[in-house]
């Protein structure tokens, strides 16, 4: 029977969520495997497990329950070991490494920040700053919208200007929030957001960080800023062999577009 792994914690963790419902339908009960100073949060792995909404949520809920009471190294969704023994084997073999990571992340949580432009606000900025775009838009408007080619020409100019603003605003947002965090991890680019940055924050400083987010929202009203946290430190566990390039911790400009 294969075993699903949620995360790794210290065996001294005060409240691992033993018995809680995990992945699968019906939810498989969470079990704790202990090996020396370490513990693995696991359950039976259901046959044919796929990344369905219910199972992704179960994974996150188990980890957030475990993370609420103490430090846990969250696994990426979908890690399955052939049996319990192979998990305790890994814990024994790499004990020093995981213990070091648990010490480094102890008392810290992840806040993920994503931002989008408020489209009308950024279009206003783009038009206010570019006489060319303004002129072309006005000409199109007077021509009842303009020809297909006119629209494409205008749209292309606007898209380029908006894209440039996305990069600038992502960098500016990160600069505003960095001072309130211990570490920064820039997430993958996507069309869904202009900034996707995770911040490692000391639990005791969470209010300071959230205050910095509020300040950023006031300073940059043309951005919609979404914050999720506190979360287990998904983005601050060591990059594994399957970690895509560019998602490791680093304070560089996201360049998100």
């Amino acid at each position: 029977m294969s075993t699903y792994v949620y995360g790794i914690a210290a065996s001294s963790h005060p409240a691992l969520p033993e018995g809680m419902g995990g992945v699968g339908d019906p939810p498989r009960p969470v079990r704790i495997l202990r090996e020396g100073d370490l513990a693995a949060v696991v359950s039976e792995a259901p046959e044919g497990l796929r990344p369905k909404r219910r199972d992704l949520l179960a994974h996150q809920n188990v980890l957030s329950e475990a993370g609420a009471a103490g430090c846990v190294l969250p696994m990426r969704f979908g890690s399955v070991a052939p049996d319990d023994n192979s998990i305790t084997g890994v814990l024994a073999e790499r004990a020093e490494h995981y213990k070091e990571r648990l010490r480094a992340l102890d008392g810290r949580v992840e806040y993920n920040v994503k931002a989008n432009h408020v489209e009308e606000a950024v279009l206003h900025q783009v038009m206010a700053e570019s006489p060319d775009i303004r002129g072309l838009a006005e000409a199109n408007r007077q021509a009842g919208g303009g020809s297909y080619d006119d629209k494409i020409r205008l749209g292309e100019l606007v898209a380029a200007a908006v894209k440039a603003k996305e990069g600038d605003d992502a960098a500016a947002l990160q600069r505003l929030l960095e001072p309130a965090a211990d570490d920064v991890s820039v997430g993958p680019e996507s069309t869904g957001w202009l900034a996707n940055v995770s911040f490692l924050v000391d639990r005791g400083s969470a209010e300071t960080f959230l205050a910095a987010v509020e300040q950023a929202r006031m300073d940059m009203p043309h951005l919609e800023v979404r914050v999720n946290g506190p979360l287990p430190p998904y983005s601050f566990v060591e990059p594994g062999p399957a970690e895509p390039a560019g998602t490791a911790a680093g304070g560089t400009d996201t360049g998100a577009g």
Partner: peptide
């Protein structure tokens, strides 16, 4: 905006669950 239980919040967290986190080469991933 930005609540952990909001609609976009859930979407944003699932992205993390899928894309980040510890990967151990001795285990397979579904």
């Amino acid at each position: 905006t930005g609540g952990g239980g909001g609609s976009s919040g859930l979407y944003d967290v699932l992205e993390l669950v899928l894309d980040r986190g510890l990967v151990i080469d001795a285990f397979v991933r579904v």
